[in-house]
């Protein structure tokens, strides 16, 4: 069930990137898209009855910490992408005075 929800998020993100013409909205779509994958990683790291992976006496089952670490890296990448995209959009706004893609293609 949760995978289906996750996949829905994935597809929504993808759809926004492809469908939208406004560049800012595209960036938002990209973020949703990336977030869905981050969530996917978090889902797979969950071990049944596991607790957060901090050593704790009395508990033997922990959730898998590795995907969390991976996703930390991926989030950094995602933020870098977003910030670069926003910077580029500012440039585009300065140059073309619009951020609607269909208008940009005409210029």
């Amino acid at each position: 069930m949760i995978f289906i929800l996750n996949m829905t998020l994935f597809l929504i993100g993808l759809f926004i990137i492809i469908r939208e013409t406004n560049l800012i909205k595209k960036v938002i779509g990209l973020n949703i898209f990336q977030a869905s994958v981050f969530i996917f990683y978090l889902i797979i790291s969950k071990v049944d009855e596991g607790i957060p992976p901090i050593l704790n006496q009395g508990y033997t089952i922990y959730s898998n910490p590795l995907p969390h670490v991976l996703i930390l890296t991926a989030i950094v990448v995602s933020i870098a992408t977003t910030s670069l995209a926003l910077a580029l959009i500012i440039k585009i706004k300065q140059k073309h005075n619009t951020i609607e893609e269909d208008e940009l293609d005409e210029t």
Partner: peptide, 17 residues
């Protein structure tokens, strides 16, 4: 080019996908 930045951001979206 005037469109260089646009080309860059379009590549950014495709590349990120």
């Amino acid at each position: 080019y005037k469109k260089s930045v646009l080309a860059a951001i379009q590549y950014l979206f495709i590349g990120s996908i």
